[in-house]
Computed example of a mutant assay.
Amino acid sequence: MSLEGSFRGKRVLVTGAGRGIGRAVVKRLHSYGAIVIATSRNPENLKTLKVECPRIETIVADLQNWEETRSAFDKLEPVDCLLNNAGLGAVKSLMTSTLEEFNQMFQINVTGTWSITQLIAQKMVNAEKGGSICFISSICGGKPFPLFGAYCMTKSALEMMANCLAVELGPKKIRVNVVRPACVDTDMLNVAETGVGMTVGVGDAFQAFMTSRTPYPGYHMEMEYLVNLILFSLSDLSPQVTGTVMTIDGGFQLS
């Protein structure tokens, strides 16, 4: 079975679908003939995505709002796969973060993800057809990074959440895995590389740090490489693969 064939006719819910990684995954799934439900808190992003992928269903919801999330997805029919991609990134020291900033990071990246996963996974359990769930983490989930403290903490929490769910849902034939990427072209990476809003030279220092610590030439990966791994983790090509963290970082974790 090919990767494309694995998704034809499958129902897949993608959070954070309006831009970046989520948008790229939706476009690939759409080309494969999957039935995609794309969600984002930004309705304009979903409108333009719908133009590119006319067969998708779109749902506007803010995952940091528990009641809104439950209301938006409560009547959704069971899906075969869930990609937890939505998340907030911020370049801020733990020593200077405010309580509001810290709480918002956890509300979106952890609590919001838990809320939708609990709801969608229960629908999978009730349908008794099995399924697959993938969480998008980051190399920040496995290593501390200066100026990314709260973000690192949320990604570590997501990885533990996925592992716990893999144990709980395994007997129901629901697989749960994590994809942990390094640098791909997203808004947060652009901020880190340019140093916008930060001390002069921080962007250059970040690029030099990543380059020196990544054995494989170039620390930037093509978006399609990451999409390939995400879809593999969700697909029928990876049976028995559950409770794993699949890292794609050019060897950064070795340094």
Rank of each mutant, 00 (worst) to 15 (best):
residue 66 W to T: 14
residue 174 I to N: 10
residue 93 S to M: 07
residue 236 D to E: 13
residue 50 K to V: 14
residue 109 N to I: 12
residue 241 V to T: 11
residue 150 A to F: 04
residue 5 G to Y: 04
residue 92 K to E: 15
residue 62 D to T: 09
residue 71 S to W: 13
residue 62 D to W: 06
residue 156 S to P: 07
residue 91 V to W: 00
residue 9 G to D: 08
residue 219 Y to N: 00
residue 84 N to H: 08
residue 31 S to I: 15
residue 166 A to E: 11
residue 247 T to Q: 13
residue 211 T to R: 07
residue 183 C to W: 10
residue 142 G to S: 06
residue 128 E to V: 02
residue 187 D to V: 10
residue 162 A to K: 13
residue 203 G to W: 14
residue 168 E to K: 09
residue 200 V to Q: 07
residue 9 G to K: 14
residue 148 F to H: 05
residue 20 G to C: 15
residue 87 G to M: 13
residue 189 L to D: 02
residue 25 V to I: 00
residue 14 V to D: 02
residue 211 T to C: 08
residue 37 I to L: 12
residue 199 T to Y: 04
residue 217 P to W: 13
residue 64 Q to M: 10
residue 243 G to Q: 10
residue 179 V to C: 07
residue 95 M to W: 07
residue 235 S to N: 02
residue 92 K to C: 08
residue 247 T to N: 06
residue 112 G to I: 09
residue 101 E to Q: 00
residue 65 N to R: 08
residue 3 L to A: 04
residue 48 T to L: 11
residue 122 Q to I: 11
residue 33 G to D: 11
residue 48 T to E: 13
residue 230 I to S: 02
residue 36 V to N: 06
residue 232 F to T: 01
residue 157 A to T: 13
residue 255 S to C: 06
residue 60 V to W: 01
residue 241 V to F: 06
residue 115 S to T: 15
residue 69 T to G: 08
residue 21 I to F: 03
residue 54 P to G: 08
residue 163 N to T: 08
residue 58 T to L: 06
residue 138 S to M: 11
residue 127 A to M: 06
residue 221 M to L: 02
residue 18 G to F: 09
residue 157 A to Y: 11
residue 176 V to N: 14
residue 39 T to M: 05
residue 130 G to Y: 00
residue 20 G to Y: 06
residue 80 D to A: 13
residue 61 A to N: 12
residue 33 G to K: 05
residue 209 F to L: 13
residue 178 V to Q: 11
residue 202 V to N: 01
residue 51 V to D: 12
residue 54 P to W: 10
residue 101 E to H: 00
residue 223 M to G: 00
residue 30 H to Y: 12
residue 2 S to L: 10
residue 95 M to P: 10
residue 185 D to L: 01
residue 71 S to H: 14
residue 2 S to Y: 03
residue 63 L to N: 10
residue 132 S to D: 00
residue 217 P to E: 01
residue 236 D to I: 01
residue 160 M to D: 07
residue 198 M to P: 03
residue 227 V to T: 06
residue 75 K to R: 14
residue 159 E to S: 10
residue 12 V to T: 06
residue 66 W to F: 13
residue 240 Q to W: 13
residue 33 G to A: 07
residue 47 K to T: 12
residue 246 M to D: 05
residue 153 M to A: 07
residue 122 Q to E: 12
residue 24 A to I: 13
residue 80 D to Y: 06
residue 237 L to I: 01
residue 164 C to V: 05
residue 86 A to F: 03
residue 202 V to F: 03
residue 111 T to Q: 05
residue 146 P to F: 08
residue 52 E to R: 07
residue 113 T to A: 15
residue 164 C to W: 09
residue 112 G to R: 06
residue 37 I to V: 12
residue 140 C to E: 05
residue 18 G to R: 12
residue 145 F to V: 00
residue 113 T to L: 15
residue 61 A to W: 14
residue 217 P to G: 02
residue 16 G to F: 05
residue 44 E to T: 10
residue 221 M to T: 00
residue 148 F to M: 14
residue 142 G to K: 14
residue 12 V to L: 03
residue 141 G to I: 13
residue 42 N to T: 15
residue 166 A to H: 11
residue 26 V to G: 01
residue 67 E to Y: 03
residue 92 K to F: 11
residue 174 I to V: 12
residue 199 T to E: 09
